Each structure stands twice: as structure tokens, then as C-alpha cells.
Amino acid sequence: MDTALRQHAIAICDAKIAQKGDAVGLSFYAFFANKNTTPPLLMQAAEWWIATHRLDHFEKATKIRALLASGV
């Protein structure tokens, strides 16, 4: 996952955690607006989420943030 997308995803996780608490779940779709304006980035996030880490559709934002921050 490229650096800009990783930083954006971390910011989204931080916002969701701040808004709804540590138990909040999200999917990789949370990193994007409802319109698919950047298909390559969407595919990059999907590959990171599904193929690389084999995550469920919804995961705890704290878990995703930790993975993103570790650079994995």
C-alpha cells in the first residue's frame, strides 16, 4: 500500500475510533468516498485487506490502524 493511502487510512481509523470508540469496526470501503473515483487505489486497499492480510469484511479499527502503522 502506498504511503499516501496508508496515511489516509490511518486518519480514517483515528477519526472512527475518536467518534465511536475502540470497538468500532470498518471495512476498506471506509477509506473511500461513495463514488469510485480512484479504482487503482481501491484495488490497492482491497488487495492489502483481502489478499495480503486475509481480513474479514469488517474488522476493528484499532486492529487495522495497528497493521497500517506497522508498515505491514
Rank of each mutant, 00 (worst) to 15 (best):
A4W: 01
A33M: 06
S70Y: 12
K35E: 03
P40Q: 12
C13L: 01
K63V: 11
A30R: 07
L41S: 07
D14Y: 05
W49T: 06
W49V: 06
M1S: 13
K35T: 07
T37Q: 14
R65Q: 15
V24S: 13
L41K: 10
D56Q: 14
A30V: 01
I12C: 12
A4D: 13
Q19M: 10
L5S: 03
T38G: 06
L55D: 14
W48M: 01
W49F: 05
D56Y: 04
A4K: 13
A45Q: 00
W48N: 00
K20V: 00
I64R: 13
N34S: 02
T3A: 08
A66M: 07
D2S: 12
A61S: 10
F28C: 05
K16R: 06
A51Y: 09
L67W: 10
G25I: 14
I10M: 02
I64Y: 10
V24R: 14
L41D: 12
D14V: 05
A46W: 08
G71W: 01
S27T: 15
L67C: 08
G71Q: 12
M1G: 13
L26E: 08
M1K: 14
T37H: 12
A45V: 00
L67S: 11
A11Y: 06
A30T: 00
S70R: 13
T37V: 12
A46D: 02
A18H: 14
A61Q: 03
D22A: 13
D22L: 04
M1Y: 10
T3S: 07
A15N: 08
K20S: 11
P39C: 10
F32M: 04
P40L: 05
F31N: 00
P40M: 09
L55V: 15
Q44I: 02
D22K: 07
A51K: 13
F58M: 13
V72P: 04
T62V: 15
T38Y: 07
S70F: 06
Y29K: 09
S27Y: 02
A30I: 00
Q7S: 02
L67H: 04
R6C: 05
F31C: 04
M43N: 11
A66L: 03
D2Q: 11
D22T: 06
F58N: 12
K20N: 09
L41N: 07
A45D: 03
A4S: 09
D14E: 13
G21Q: 01
A66F: 04
A4N: 11
I64H: 06
I17Y: 07
I12L: 03
T52I: 05
A30M: 04
I10A: 03
Y29H: 10
A18G: 14
H8T: 01
H8G: 01
D14C: 09
M43V: 02
E47L: 01
T38W: 00
S70T: 14
N34Q: 06
I10S: 00
V24N: 07
F32L: 02
A18D: 15
A11R: 06
L26S: 09
A4P: 01
H8L: 08
A23T: 15
L41Y: 11
N36E: 10
D22G: 02
R54M: 07
K60W: 10
A23E: 15
